[in-house]
Design a protein around this nucleic acid. Structure first.
Length: 367
DNA sequence: CCTCAGTCAGAAGTCATCAA
DNA sequence: TTGATGACTTCTGACTGAGG
């Protein structure tokens, strides 16, 4: 089915002891963000909270106070570039661990948006691949390579402490997924992450991929959960090939999650709370249920995303808005990447909104 | 002196376009 | 329809410079 040739066998998953050899106890302390001068340069530097896209305008030669002296300016630029390159290695690993897989271009867009080409990212990927055991793996497809995090890389990333607790469980299944048709789904998700990142609506580090949420009807596993810069969260679903019936069924699963009875006991000071309230509503329960954002991405032999989006709204109209108490908004990946999530690209399902589109901030609140 | 990162050039593969 | 061509992207190797 897939026209891509089978990729070479990925690096043999390392044993735990192998990974432990890479992540020595003194190498792991991610808690200290400032790298100690005593740390050997060979060690992987995981510097996750270095702002990947600093608000420095591209081509900012005039902003540097020493830019007037050609030699000094060039040296300063060089030093800065070197530092960024050293840090980018850890960020690449963390990003791959978090997002499952990505292309060099996607990684560049997330981590080095001011860079013109993907050389730095590919250099970092090459270094991570050369580690023993390899921390990342690669599969090839036409004019593109896809990189993923190996178990050893995930161990390294997790040891840094910068990885969200449930993010990036790169099991063998996930690695296999990165080499099949599912990789297109994963790449569409990363494109979505890039769009949110570039619009400064959410940082790429604020995404969690495929986190299980318990519902009475079984686990709900959104493609992504994003913490937005305004402090709220949203579920994100990528659709490429799912049938409309399954999409509507997914809505029902979200509704079940929303209406799940409180788990655990409350006490005199605090009423019992359901899972979503415990996880997302904040201490004072002042936040409404998270909006569910559907992104329709292109897929071969399928109707165009806009067509599928329109059909989805027709189906959802009959059930959504009447019975459900969740906000569902849709867009296409094309619109998202072209305009950004902060522009009026979201169409609210159900509620008789017609085809009007709203920005993310203007979405109605769930009841 | 050694290691590592940045940079560059060249090769390879694929896709899109255009003319025969 | 087919072949040629250019554009695009990635990979690899080599060189250079900085820092320990």
């Amino acid at each position: 089915m897939t026209t891509a040739p089978l990729p070479p066998v990925p690096p043999t998953p390392p044993t735990v002891s192998d990974s432990a050899a890479t992540v020595s106890p003194e190498a792991s302390p991610a808690a200290s963000h400032a790298p100690s001068p005593a740390v050997p340069s060979r060690r992987l530097a995981v510097v996750a909270d270095q702002t990947p896209c600093r608000p420095v305008p591209a081509g900012c030669n005039s902003s540097s106070p020493s830019a007037d002296v050609p030699g000094e300016a060039s040296r300063a630029r060089k030093t800065a570039a070197t530092k960024a390159g050293a840090d980018i290695r850890g960020e690449v690993l963390l990003t791959l661990a978090q997002l499952r897989l990505a292309t060099p271009r996607q990684l560049k867009a997330l981590l080095l948006p001011h860079q013109q080409d993907t050389d730095h990212v590919r250099r970092a990927l090459r270094n991570l691949l050369d580690e023993s055991p390899a921390l990342v793996g690669r599969t090839h497809r036409v004019q593109q390579s896809y990189w993923y995090c190996t178990p050893a890389g995930l161990t390294e990333a997790a040891a840094s402490g910068e990885l969200a607790p449930k993010a990036g469980r790169t099991t063998g299944k996930r690695i296999a997924a990165s080499k099949t048709g599912l990789r297109e789904h994963g790449l569409a998700l990363v494109d979505t992450v890039v769009a949110f990142h570039q619009a400064e609506v959410a940082d790429c580090a604020d995404w969690q991929v495929e986190v299980a949420h318990p519902t009475p009807a079984g686990n709900l596993v959104p493609d992504g959960v994003v913490l937005l810069n305004n402090g709220s969260c949203a579920f994100v679903e990528i659709d490429r090939t799912m049938s409309y019936a399954r999409l509507v069924a997914k809505l029902e699963r979200y509704d079940a999650y929303r209406n799940a009875p409180p788990s655990g006991r409350g006490n005199a000071a605090r009423a019992p709370r359901s899972h979503w309230q415990e996880t997302y509503a904040g201490p004072s329960l002042d936040r409404s249920f998270l909006p569910v954002l559907f992104v329709f991405a292109p897929a071969p032999r399928r109707a165009a995303p806009a067509t599928r989006e329109a059909a989805f709204h027709q189906r959802a109209q009959h059930v959504h808005g009447v019975n459900y108490r969740i906000i569902v908004a849709t867009t296409t990946l094309g619109q998202l990447t072209k305009h950004g999530p902060d522009e009026p690209v979201w169409r609210v399902a159900g509620r008789g909104e017609g085809e009007e589109r709203r920005s993310l901030d203007a979405l109605p609140k769930a009841r």
